[in-house]
Nucleic acid binder design. Structure first.
Lengths: 171, 171
DNA sequence: GATGAAAAGCTTTAAGC
DNA sequence: GCTTAAAGCTTTTCATC
């Protein structure tokens, strides 16, 4: 299980991924669509070695089972005016549940946030953000974190480069 | 500029994103394809308010200019047997350029690595990985990092949850 | 640079194995 | 669960604005 439903409900409209294990064909479909989500169904079928109608059915089933969670275009950050990336570790001060929930609802949706990691250990959250300049970075932290009373401590680290990995499929 | 070409060549087959600024139509195309990379070109055209032939031309141009860097399917990590995520901060010991390059070539491509952040500050790299269990996590760190002589220190933090952000487009 | 029309190609459904 | 075939859409090209 990923996130046991203790205390908080599941996000609306999402069923947990069905327990059926993936067969080789499903894994090849995932691999192909991770590589190029915009390939045609016919190309996909050929790549995987099945009929187009089968490819379509399988792909649909993977989406309906929640195994494929979406298809997204990746964009060059510099081209959209966000050439400065940073990782910001955040320790919260209070451990009042409502305040923490307010932080968790607000911060991950702020403009420039690429991902928020809720972590164990000394740091509570790690924010991966992208902004236009180091001046904007300073202002971002001041405006969005430093002024929040629930935030105890932050530490900002510049990211020189983000290197994508080989992805989540078994090697 | 994103990564000045000092010392190392540009990755093969990539031209830097052309300096032409994005107009409103381009930004709406990006927003739509970030939201759903598999929508048809016709849907995209309608959503953006242009003719299908124009949508196709613009989308192609965005890819050719390197502004769209790819289209990828997102998969549920638990469904592919990787329900445990971790962030591993890595400090290197030696500052010998060849050893660092060997590390940088090897580690980001290891099975389970979702992303590698090359960072400024006290930590040199932060690895975001996904594995099947905490036992696998322990073994992963031992096998891939602890035994590498160039690695000085690592610190592993469990990720309870990774919350996707609103993405990189200006709000 | 954007559009509309026509040809080529793709997706989708349903019936059959 | 897979395949085939046919109808309906979509993509793509290109002449035109």
């Amino acid at each position: 299980m990923t996130t046991p439903s203790i205390g908080r409900p599941h996000p609306a409209g999402q069923h947990p991924p069905s327990g059926e294990p993936l067969d080789e064909v499903d894994r090849r479909i995932l691999a192909a669509l991770i590589e190029d989500a915009r390939m045609t169904n016919k190309q996909l079928a050929e790549m995987v070695g099945i009929a187009p109608s089968t490819a379509l059915m399988r792909t649909r089933a993977l989406s309906e089972r929640g195994i494929i969670t979406g298809f997204e275009a990746k964009v060059d950050l510099a081209a959209v005016g966000r050439s400065v990336q940073a990782l910001i570790s955040v320790r919260l001060r209070a451990h009042d549940r409502d305040q923490i929930d307010a932080f968790t609802a607000r911060v991950p949706q702020l403009a420039g946030v690429l991902a928020t990691f809720h972590t164990s250990g000394a740091v509570d959250y790690l924010l991966h953000i992208a902004v236009g300049s180091t001046e904007e970075l300073r202002d971002w932290v001041l405006d969005n974190l430093a002024t929040d009373p629930v935030v105890g401590h932050t530490e900002t680290t510049l990211v020189f480069e983000r290197i994508p990995g080989p992805g989540p499929l078994p090697a």
